[in-house]
Design a protein around this nucleic acid. Structure first.
Lengths: 233, 233
DNA sequence: ACAAAAGTGTTGGAGATACACCCATGA
DNA sequence: TCATGGGTGTATCTCCAACACTTTTGT
C-alpha cells in the first residue's frame, strides 16, 4: 500500500555530561532476521508526532517516555527530509517491525539538549528498546540518517555554548565556576584558562553569585553561583 | 473528515535587494467571502511537499514556479509545527478554497534566501495568486504564522551575513566592494565605515580580487572582485 | 576643470590570551 | 602541616571603531 501522506517524527539528541565525559542517549534496536540472527544497531530516540501535538511537545514526550525527565530545555535543530532517508534495507526492516506504514515517507524534526547525567538514569522504554549512554567519541554508525543529525547537533551545541555560555539544564541550580568550566571543556573538547574563563563568565548578567559556599569538600570551599532563567534563550 | 495524517509544506522567505531597499516576495491571497466581499491578505510563498520530493527540492520548486529562478541558494530556517498554526478563521477559509484536506494538521519547513532583484521579475503563478515584492519595512500582518517565520528569517539572515559576509546568490559574478558594502548596509539597516569594511572583507579567503575594472561608469572605475563558491556554506 | 565615487593609514580602546602564586579548608 | 582545589592581576596582542584626504576617470 502506497501511503499518500508523509509521516512526521521527532528525533532527540540528548547529550549528557558527567565530570569528565560527554555522552549521548541512544536506543539499541534489536532486529530478528529471518535467519534467526539478532542484529543490533543504535538510533536516536524518536517517535512519530501525534496529530494534535506540537513538535516541541512531541520531543518532550519522547524524552519523558525514555527517561522520566520533564521540562528539559530542548532546541530545534531543523527538519531532515531526504525522501530516502529511511529507505536503507536495515531501516526498512526495522520499520516493518514497528510501524503500521513502514513504507511511508517520513520526515523528522530533530531536537537537541544537554543534561547532567547524575540527574537521572534513563529507564528502558516500553518498546523492545534499550536506552543507553554512549560517549560521543565512541558512537558507531547510526540508523537512518541519525549520524548526520548527531553531527549537526554536536556542532550546534558547541556554537551555542560558546556564544551563550550559560544555557540548558546543564548544572545544578547552584554550581561553582570550576564546574561550569569543566562543562565547557568537556563539550568543546579543549582546555581553558581558569582566570580568563572566570573573568569572561562573571561579566555575564546571566550569572549570579550567591552568598553561599560549597560544603563537605576536602579543600577550600568554592563560591556558589546560579543563573537567571530569563537569559536562557 | 478527520485526517489521520499530517501534511508537510515548505514556505520560502525570499529576500530581494535593489540598490537601496530590502524587499520580500509575498503572495497576495484573494478570498471571496460569502457576502461577496473580496478580502486580501499576504502570505509567504509555499506549497505542500510532494510525497517523493526532498524538502530542499520542494523549496526550490516553489521558488521556481513563482519566479522561474533555479538553483538559488536557500537555507533552512526550521520547522514550524504548532498544531493550531493554520487554525485561524481566515486561515481555514483560505485552505478550504485550495486544499483537498483543509482541516489537516500541517507543519511547515521554512527556507530563506537572498537574491538580487534585477535578476528577474517574479511572474504570477498559475494559481489565483499574485507574487509581489514588498519592502521589509512595510510588510503587514501575514497569514498563518508567517509573520513569525519572516521575523525569524530576517534575524537569521542578519546573523548569517555578519558571520559569513559572502553568502547567497547575492551579487553579480563580478562586483565591486562598494556594491558588497551596500548590500550589507541594506540588510543590516545600518551605515558601515568604508575603510573598516574593506579591510575586513579583504582578509577573507572567500573574496578574490580580479585584474579587471568596472567599465562605463562616470567616475573612477572600481576594481572587480569575485568569490570562491566553496566558501558559500 | 569639475563631478563622482574609488581608494588608502593611523590612532585609541576593548577584549582576548598567556602566565604563576597565595589562600582556605578538612583530614 | 599537608594536600587539594579556590581564587586572583598584569603585560601583551589582536581586533574593532573612528576619522579625511588624494586619485582616477568621464563629461
Amino acid at each position: 500500500m502506497i501511503n499518500e501522506f508523509i509521516d512526521v517524527s521527532v528525533d532527540c539528541v540528548i547529550f549528557g555530561f558527567t565530570d569528565d565525559l560527554l555522552q549521548v542517549l541512544l536506543i539499541e534496536q534489536k532486529m530478528y532476521g529471518t535467519d534467526n540472527k539478532v542484529s543490533k544497531r543504535f538510533a536516536l530516540p524518536g517517535d512519530l508526532v501525534y496529530r494534535s501535538e506540537g513538535l516541541d511537545a512531541a520531543a518532550q514526550r519522547v524524552l519523558y517516555e525514555l527517561t522520566s525527565l520533564k521540562n528539559v530545555y530542548m532546541k530545534q535543530l531543523g527538519a531532515f527530509g531526504d525522501p530516502d532517508r529511511v529507505m536503507g534495507e536495515d531501516d526498512q526492516q526495522w520499520l516493518r517491525s514497528i510501524r503500521t506504514n513502514p513504507d511511508a515517507r517520513v520526515i523528522t524534526v530533530a531536537y537537541y539538549s544537554l543534561v547532567r547525567l547524575e540527574m537521572f538514569d534513563p529507564k528502558p522504554s516500553s518498546f523492545a528498546q534499550e536506552a543507553v549512554w554512549v560517549p560521543v567519541k565512541d558512537v558507531p554508525q547510526l540508523a537512518f540518517d541519525h549520524s548526520k543529525i548527531l553531527n549537526k547537533a554536536l556542532s550546534e551545541l558547541r556554537d551555542q555554548i560558546e556564544s551563550h555560555p550559560v544555557s540548558f539544564e546543564l548544572l545544578p541550580k547552584k554550581f561553582t565556576l570550576s564546574q561550569l568550566q569543566q562543562l565547557h571543556e568537556i563539550v568543546l573538547d579543549t582546555k581553558l584558562d581558569k582566570r580568563n574563563f572566570r573573568r569572561k563568565v562573571q561579566k555575564l548578567d546571566a550569572l549570579v553569585a550567591l552568598d553561599e559556599k560549597q560544603q563537605g569538600v576536602l579543600h577550600k570551599p568554592a563560591r556558589l553561583f546560579t543563573y537567571n532563567k530569563k537569559y536562557n534563550d
